[in-house]
Design a protein around this nucleic acid. Structure first.
Lengths: 251, 251
DNA sequence: GCGATCATTATTATCGATATTGATTTTCTG
DNA sequence: CAGAAAATCAATATCGATAATAATGATCGC
């Protein structure tokens, strides 16, 4: 587990807003994603508070959020445990993600980024920085933020929570897995790759954009978690690339 | 707004587990669903604490949860406001719900309720009780619990958060609306209606089951929020009833 | 010896007080 | 009088201590 303590606000690496509870949540989320805390581990609020250098209540709030994300399970008066991940759950989430991302791509192909362009650019720049610094954890954060940003820009804010959850658990599977050597993993998922994806999506017809997006997901999985890619199955990618299925037509 | 205070645990109407934070959350959720707290209302933790008879921290946790559900928006250091609802958002959520519920029905038609049958029965019985007692709020809770239970029983636990959110906001629209006189509303959504639905779903072929389910949603909307039904559009119901679109094949 | 009942323990859940923050208003200074 | 700096204010965010809870182990009557 990471052993850093929470400085008092303002100096935390990310979350420049500097709420202790956010920073605590990030550290714990990271520990779970990278399997420094493995499924089944018992967490006690007091112990975490001591480790993170904050009070029990702050830890508590962070755990509450992690529970909503599905990374831990809280049992009243009896502690918190890190949830298990199963291949079949991850598979289902990836399929859901494909459906959503395909629809996002289709919409972006038609209406463009509009006023989200600048924010997305910033994200991509940060991604380059994080990659240069070898900060895989931050790359993961930014990757999720990127895809969520696209989803919002595509006028599907209501799907963001779903997409976020899917992406989070997919990262949990890929980052925590042991299928791919660490050094190689650090080469992946960088800014320029996402920039290329974005250009393709914005410059193609809707269905071509959808295919580019699903191909992006496939590429990532092929590189980081081949077994998950196999479990998802090719036909899920094809289906998602083919026709609209989600939520109709409005913003 | 409801003015009840939190007794100390154990005596709360529902949530027999009796955590104050749960009870506080229920009261606030109810106030928002029934529009006793209208969109845009500013909430302050201290004031709510005084009203609910608990401490600021407890209110805080409850608000945190409501924020995850999308009923309020929290702004760091600057208070919490009740979110706005728009017809277009509700429309999108209903469409999403139709897709999910149709898939749930299809699966239940094939594999049955398995071991969830007993729990579902209990829910339906509670629904009758609540209806006889004229407790519309509890009927709403139980209705959501029923549909979530089916979703889980159908082997789609990962869609539960999505479905829950969709159902919640749909209830917000119907319960808070003024399209239908109160007395009439209280006649709706009762246990025997859900029992009939369940029997039809379990005793039909997959696609017929899906149509029965979407028709159920349509009926509810027709009765409680005709304008929302119109905004969703018939073709969304037909499409959801037609072919599987969600998440593939696994549990 | 044996089951029921009562302490013990580990942990969460709640509280009341204090620190921090962002916005607003006031005060100073040129 | 305008504009910056300082004081104030209304809120959240955090803390440390205490109460409530569920599980476990000890005790007692028989």
């Amino acid at each position: 587990m990471s052993t850093q303590a929470l400085q008092h606000a303002s100096t935390g690496r990310d979350s420049l807003g500097g709420l202790k509870v956010d920073r605590a949540g990030e550290i714990l989320r990271d520990d779970i994603l990278f399997r420094r805390l493995s499924p089944g581990t018992q967490l006690t609020e007091q112990a975490l508070a001591a480790r993170l250098g904050c009070s029990q209540g702050t830890v508590r709030e962070a755990l509450l959020r992690l529970a909503e994300e599905g990374l831990v399970e809280r049992r009243s008066y009896r502690g918190t445990v890190v949830t298990e991940t199963t291949l079949s759950e991850a598979t289902a989430l990836v399929r859901m993600r494909l459906d959503i991302e395909a629809e996002v791509a289709r919409r972006l192909a038609q209406s463009g980024l509009s006023d989200a362009a600048e924010a997305i650019d910033t994200l991509l720049a940060d991604m380059d920085t994080a990659h240069d610094a070898g900060d895989l954890s931050r790359c993961s954060d930014l990757d999720r933020a990127f895809h969520l940003g696209l989803c919002r820009a595509a006028g599907l804010p209501l799907l963001c929570p779903v997409l976020g959850r899917a992406a989070l658990h997919m990262h949990r599977f890929t980052l925590g897995g042991v299928e791919v050597p660490r050094a190689f993993r650090e080469e992946a998922g960088v800014g320029h790759e996402h920039r290329a994806l974005l250009n393709t999506v914005l410059g193609s017809a809707p269905n071509a954009a959808a295919r580019a997006m699903t191909e992006h997901v496939a590429t990532v999985l092929r590189r980081w978690a081949p077994s998950l890619l196999a479990a998802v199955g090719d036909q899920a990618f094809d289906a998602a690339g083919a026709a609209a299925s989600i939520g109709g037509t409005e913003a």
